[in-house]
Every structure is written in C-alpha cells, then in structure tokens.
C-alpha cells in the first residue's frame, strides 16, 4: 500500500482549471520530485494536498485512509502528518526563531513546552542556526529564514514533508546551504514531495521524478529515465530546454 496515493485530482482557481487528472503515489521513504515549466501546476498540487485549495475531483489517500477536504477533522488529521515548507518561508514575522519553531507543537499538538524547546534547539542546531534562537525573521537572510522554516516543519514531526520551491526565492549563494539540509533529510529517509527548479539537485536526490505540464503529469520515472531517456515528446522538449540552459 502506498504511503500517499493521489488519484485523478482536479483543481481550479475560480473557473480556471489548474490541475486535471493528476495521479501519483508515493511510497514510504521515497523522494518524489515534481518538475516542469512555471504554471504547470507543481506548486498548486502541493497546495491542494495540504488543503489550501480544495480539490474539485479525485481522491487523496494517506495510509489507506481517504482525506475528506470538506471535513475539518479529516483535514486536521492530514495536516498533522504532512508539513509544507513554502517558497517565501512564511515565518511568523512577529515571533522569534525559537517561537516560530515551537508554537505549533506546544499550542496545537499540546506537547510539553520544555521537551519541545529542547527538540527545537536541536533542530535549529542541525540546520546551523543554533545561535539565532532569539533572532526575528527580519534579522535573518533568506537562506537562514528558509532553514528556520524547514526546522519548523520538522518540529511538527511530519511523516511526509512537502517542499514548495524552497530555494527559488533565495540569492544564488544561499541556495546550497538549504539544499545541504534537504540532502541531510533525504539521507535520514524522510518521505518527501519536492517541487524544484534545481535540476542537478532533483536528479541527485529523487527516487522518482514527475514532469508536469498544463496541470497534468506527462511522464514519471527514475531520474535517469526522465533526464536521459524521456519517452514523451513533452518530456524530451522540456529536458532539451533545461540542458540548453545549463
């Protein structure tokens, strides 16, 4: 049984369809990357998965339990197990780093504050920010903010981590420090669904790569298959374009 199974998912912004018939399954410990041109629906798929945009059609099944996006309890249970990191970090700007990381585990998951703080400090040390506990987001660089955001997501102890273009808003010299953290998580066997434009990185860490175009998955396979021997015309075309760009 797949860990996460998405079947025939449709979604729309107002009347504009943005996802049509997306099916994808993710096994435990897998890193599945979504690639494709801007506007192809990669980020939208992650937003739909965490319930920020309700799907029009289709099913999402987590460990055999279907998610009902119109039901708060079902949605909460899903969000309890899937954490997302956004392109723009979305740290709470009125809270310092430590509070950003601890507030949800303490207030929402009702865990013991001292235990959570110790864990948060360890997580922040892991992402290289052990000395920034009391800093506010505005005092940090983009790369540092994104590392806090990753620590915040990990503090929720998610089973699946969704990464939405986490390096796209960063200055080039800050990209590596964030990718290094993700490599670390890949090494620990975290299940991840990753949207990224860092093709070298995608190729390196992914178990499978899904190419999206116009709201649908056009081809899915191992990194070698997608990048070296794409089958569909759409995939060949996309890969040729990125190769030309590099």
């Amino acid at each position: 049984m797949p860990h996460l199974e998405i079947t025939n998912l449709d979604a729309a912004y107002k009347s504009q369809p943005v996802l049509s018939g997306v099916s994808l399954s993710v096994e435990k410990g897998e890193v599945v990357s979504l690639i494709g041109p801007s506007g192809s629906g990669k980020s939208t798929l992650l937003r739909v998965l965490v319930g920020l945009l309700p799907p029009r059609k289709g099913t999402v099944v987590l460990d055999g339990t279907p998610v009902d996006y119109s039901d708060q309890r079902s949605l909460r249970a899903l969000r309890d197990r899937c954490a997302i990191v956004f392109q723009q970090f979305n740290l709470f700007r009125n809270m310092d780093v430590l509070r950003n990381v601890t507030i949800a585990p303490v207030k929402i998951k009702k865990r013991d504050r001292r235990e959570v703080e110790a864990e948060a400090e360890a997580l922040l040390a892991k992402v290289g920010l052990g000395d920034k506990l009391r800093a506010y987001p505005s005092e940090l660089s983009g790369g540092q903010q994104q590392r806090v955001a990753i620590a915040r997501a990990l503090a929720l102890r998610p089973e699946i981590l969704l990464l939405d273009e986490v390096t796209s808003a960063l200055d080039p010299e800050l990209v590596q420090e964030v990718l290094d953290i993700i490599r670390l998580l890949v090494g620990e066997g975290m299940t991840m669904l990753v949207v990224s434009h860092e093709m070298g990185f995608v190729r390196e860490v992914s178990s499978r790569v899904a190419l999206m175009s116009a709201g649908a998955i056009v081809e899915i396979g191992s990194p070698a298959q997608i990048f070296d021997a794409p089958k569909t015309e759409r995939a060949k075309d996309f890969v040729a374009k990125i190769l030309r760009a590099h």
């Binding site: 920020l52 969000r79 956004f86 979305n90 709470f92 929402i108």
Partner: peptide, 10 residues
Amino acid sequence: NQWDSAATMN
C-alpha cells in the same frame, strides 16, 4: 502567506 502557514500547521 501568514494565514497559509498557520492553516497548514492546524
């Protein structure tokens, strides 16, 4: 986006 991250953290 502050609403978004709050919502996804329940």
